[in-house]
Nucleic acid binder design. Structure first.
Lengths: 221, 221
DNA sequence: AACATAAGAATCGTTGAACAATTCGACAAG
DNA sequence: CTTGTCGAATTGTTCAACGATTCTTATGTT
């Protein structure tokens, strides 16, 4: 009857106000409500959210560590505006994390999630919903990385993709960027599924090279 | 005459009190002054350091995000005490980051740093300075990972090794753990230097498997 | 003696106000 | 046009207070 309740233990830790504030801000940044480069005033936001400045500052620290905010001493916090070098580095990390993942090979449960993401992307693309394609694409790569089986790598990937979303918000034409990768995701899935890790890794490397170039060319922050 | 001063811009950002407090605490944890599992009282530490509780809390948040502190709501912050699963995951990440590094192959400047670390470890071992061996070993792996050429990966490795140091502080016999790896480091260096990335990667995998097993066996938190 | 319960102490979570330090723009002086 | 200075605005940090939560200890019951 008691089964394994220890798995629910983490959920027990409720969250402090600062963490909830951080969640809200993270969402707002992720959805583009706060634009990259924009300054976040302590006074107006703490007032708007109805929390004290001290609590808000704790939240700022959290997001600063996630590289979503840029904290400049005595000047305030700004939504991070990644540089072209940042983009390169993000893709450098992706090549490492995703490359290692495909080399490890498929696991049934993860594969199901990946497939679902591919389908979602295809469905969204069919409806010209490029926002939806982007979201599904992110889920695809997040699931891909989870093949590593490492909570820390999953967390790192989450942060990386959140940072990458900042880049997307600076771009003007998300369709041109996401469109080519719907098909590529399906192809990559096929290579993984059929147990050809080296081929999949090579394909992925080319995939990421292509994406990086595309992104950097269209990127002038 | 003005040349490129924009490169010096980062140095302009001095550090706030909270960051300096975080630096101090990080050092203290790293050196074992604060033991894993120990609770850090807001009152006593803020008083001891002469900073306000609010400032100290900001510092706590930073270190919490680095996984050096464990923040339990309404109960305080504790020096993190990694579980056996944490150790496994840390090595999972190491296999990914270090594996990717050796596959990329040697770069002259980095190779020099790696060599220096190997020599330092050998010198320290000759003098039975196992603390020194541990430090040199960390420098070795940090340099190894820097072959990836990614600031973000370097940073991730720094945090990972800091977390791993927590594990070492729980162990009683550091010598037994560090001793076997002095020679292995030299061998691995040789494989990298001579341009045999696949062999180096295989050797490294075995290296890390061995270290992980050794560590987990001797680890009962 | 074992266990449950309740009161009390200690600590954290959060707030609001206050003041010093720093930045930045405006404007005057050279 | 450059440089120096003033002042408003914002951040950095501290302090005191109080409610909320957890831990401890004493108390009472079976």
């Amino acid at each position: 009857m008691v089964a394994d309740l220890s798995q629910d233990r983490p959920r027990l830790g409720r969250s402090s106000t600062a963490e909830r504030v951080a969640d809200i801000l993270r969402d707002r940044i992720s959805e583009g409500f706060f634009r990259p480069g924009q300054r976040l005033s302590e006074e107006s936001i703490s007032e708007g959210l109805g929390v004290s400045r001290n609590t808000l500052r704790e939240a700022f620290r959290l997001l600063g560590h996630e590289r979503l905010l840029d904290h400049k001493l005595n000047r305030g916090v700004f939504v991070r505006l990644p540089s072209a070098e940042d983009v390169s580095d993000l893709y450098r990390v992706r090549r490492v994390l995703e490359g290692a993942a495909v080399r490890i090979g498929p696991a049934p449960e993860v594969l199901a999630v990946i497939k679902e993401a591919v389908l979602d992307a295809e469905r969204a693309a069919a409806q010209d919903d490029w926002q939806g394609v982007g979201t599904a694409n992110i889920r695809f790569h997040q699931a891909l990385v989870s093949l590593n089986g490492s909570p820390r790598i999953d967390e790192a990937m989450r942060q990386l993709l959140a940072e990458l979303r900042l880049v997307f918000h600076v771009m003007e034409n998300p369709r041109a960027f996401h469109e080519p990768f719907v098909d590529r995701n399906r192809t990559l899935l096929g290579l993984i599924e059929s147990g050809q890790p080296e081929k999949a890794a090579a394909y992925l490397d080319d995939y990421l090279d292509h994406a990086e170039r595309l992104l950097i060319d269209a990127y002038a922050p």
